[in-house]
């Protein structure tokens, strides 16, 4: 474990906590894409298939349980919770995310580290996570104004994978046989998708203004 990876995991955890706070505090999920949340639940469920078979550390197991439980809880809130579900922007959240699932799975069948059940699903989860934010970014552009907590949620979500890229660079130089080129390339794509959001987030922070994305 290196500082970049630990910082990345904590940033990822903070993003989840900020989203839970937003939903709990405002009893609303306006501005949040249910499709992106469903994709994240799928990412964690397919990536952590080794939860019961490979024990790495207490930290690893606890964090996996937190990410699986929180992503399912958020999807449950947005679909079932009588008050929260009413504020879901159903007619704005129209990205056809099934294409992302299909494309990621096909790519995982073609490009993986080993052609095995767990390995293919691991590669699938890596590719899917890289594009899972797309429905959320599209919803953001459509809904125009973004409440602060939603803006912070997306910022931390984007920042965590950027920290992971530093972790892969660090491990590449420090560990002999370390190679995570699938995760690294997907991580670069994932972080690049946030580029324009990071820019508008920085502008809003610099001008102490509300976060505005161009329609």
């Amino acid at each position: 474990m290196n500082i970049f990876r630990f910082a990345g995991d904590m940033t990822h955890l903070i993003s989840v906590l900020v989203l839970l706070l937003k939903i709990y505090a405002t009893k609303s999920c306006s501005g949040i894409s249910l499709k992106t949340q469903e994709l994240y639940a799928l990412v964690f469920l397919t990536r952590y298939l080794d939860l019961l078979t490979d024990f790495i550390s207490i930290y690893n197991t606890v964090m996996k349980l937190i990410f699986i439980a929180s992503s399912l809880a958020i999807v449950w809130c947005m679909r079932v919770h009588p008050i929260v579900r009413r504020s879901y922007d159903k007619d704005l959240d129209t990205f056809r995310h099934y294409f992302l699932v299909a494309a990621s799975f096909i790519l995982a069948l073609l490009v993986n580290e080993k052609f095995g059940f767990q390995e293919v699903f691991w590669a699938f989860s890596i590719y899917l996570e890289a594009v899972a934010i797309l429905p959320q970014l599209v919803l953001l552009q459509r809904s125009g104004n973004v409440d602060n907590l939603t803006g912070h949620y997306i910022f931390f979500l984007g920042a965590y994978r950027a920290l992971y890229i530093l972790n892969w660079i660090y491990r590449y130089f420090m560990e002999t046989h370390f190679s995570r080129w699938i995760a690294c390339i997907a991580g670069l794509v994932q972080t690049a998708l946030y580029a324009d959001f990071f820019y508008y987030y920085y502008i809003s922070w610099k001008n102490k203004a509300k976060l505005q994305l161009p329609a």
């Binding site: 990822h12 990536r47 790495i56 080993k114």
Partner: peptide
């Protein structure tokens, strides 16, 4: 550190 191939990252 985990051996080769084991996914030790989240």
């Amino acid at each position: 550190t985990a051996d080769e191939g084991v996914k030790d990252e989240l």
